[in-house]
């Protein structure tokens, strides 16, 4: 049997398929629809220090082969998360990575310090790239800010840190390097693209927040190119995200250089898709007589 295991920072994953933040809730929502034990890792919906109500409706809008969303990081805050969600997540037996976002460095620091004490949490994903919060620019659009946030969190925890990058930048490699230099164990890319849609009959934006984040199959080629560029230029693992709908897409990202991948929007359409992608990758490796998944990572040299 082909070996699917991969390592991201200190986390050993039984396979490279992770459920992306914001598309998998806190896992319990999927317990009847997918075998949670079969997934490589689960990244929970981004939590913040204080509860957030989120953005006005409408928050979702379908586009050609994609979705625009402007949820606005609605969540109950860390206190509720630790009390209500952690007990269930701890029992699953799959590595749990908690996505966090803060309004400033202090908030990231406080969140990480509290999560650091929870044994059943394997890692922290720094969401410095959500397009739907009203701040001036994203942390992930600035090398210095990215460096400072990662450095602050690195100081407080030895848990695996994954920094989630935004595609809404001129040079994503520079931001990835900043995260790497500040001690991030891995980078995940990409978060959603800034986008917009208008209803021409009402002459109103289709999202309450006017703009939102675009995800789904329509962003895949751009995300793939960014994963390719980043993985060539940094030494820490890259986790590929962007419109992965099936095993073929996942394999493509790994060939572009991703050590693991995250499945996002596809969870909304096919709730059992993560499990299906794991099986698909396994079949591919078997068919092509590839012994271990690492052998395809970043390998664009053809069959020879």
């Amino acid at each position: 049997m082909a070996k699917l295991e991969v390592k991201i920072g200190k986390i050993k994953l039984k396979n490279p398929v992770m459920a992306a933040s914001g598309t998998f809730g806190y896992a319990k929502e999927f317990e009847k629809l997918v075998n949670l034990k079969h997934i490589g890792a689960i990244i929970t919906k981004t939590i913040t220090l204080n509860p957030r109500q989120g953005n006005p409706m409408p928050r979702i809008c379908e586009t050609s082969a994609g979705i625009l969303n402007a949820i606005g990081l609605q969540n109950e805050g860390i206190d509720n998360f630790l009390k209500e969600k952690i007990p269930y997540l701890s029992k699953i037996g799959t590595p749990i990575i908690v996505s966090i976002s803060g309004n400033n460095i202090d908030e990231f620091f406080i969140l990480a310090r509290r999560l650091d004490k929870i044994k059943s949490i394997s890692g922290i994903e720094l969401n410095i790239s959500c397009p739907n919060i009203n701040c001036e620019g994203l942390v992930a659009q600035d090398t210095k800010e990215t460096h400072e946030v990662v450095k602050a969190v690195r100081k407080i925890t030895d848990k695996t840190i994954i920094t989630k990058l935004s595609p809404n930048v001129t040079d994503i490699v520079k931001i990835a390097r900043a995260a790497e230099n500040a001690g991030s164990d891995a980078v995940s890319l990409v978060n959603t693209f800034f986008g917009m849609a208008i209803d021409i009959n009402t002459r109103k934006p289709k999202l309450g927040n006017i703009t939102g984040g675009l995800s789904g199959p329509c962003i895949k080629p751009i995300a793939l190119r960014m994963v390719y560029e980043v993985s060539k230029n940094i030494d820490i693992p890259v986790i590929g995200i962007g419109g992965i709908m099936n095993a073929n897409d996942a394999i493509e990202f790994m060939m572009a250089g991703a050590a693991a991948i995250q499945v996002g929007t596809a969870n909304f359409i096919e709730p059992g898709v993560c499990d299906k992608i794991v099986k698909g990758i396994e079949e591919y490796l078997k068919k092509h007589k590839i012994e271990k998944i690492e052998d395809i990572a970043g390998n664009l040299d053809g069959n020879n």
């Binding site: 598309t23 999927f30 989120g54 928050r59 949820i71 609605q74």
Partner: peptide, 22 residues
């Protein structure tokens, strides 16, 4: 009737304002 993406309480797209919160 609201526009929905996932239908299972995950995407938080179909928010409804109620007296006891969203």
């Amino acid at each position: 009737e609201e526009k929905m993406a996932c239908g299972i309480g995950v995407c938080l797209g179909c928010a409804v304002k109620t007296k006891s919160g969203t």
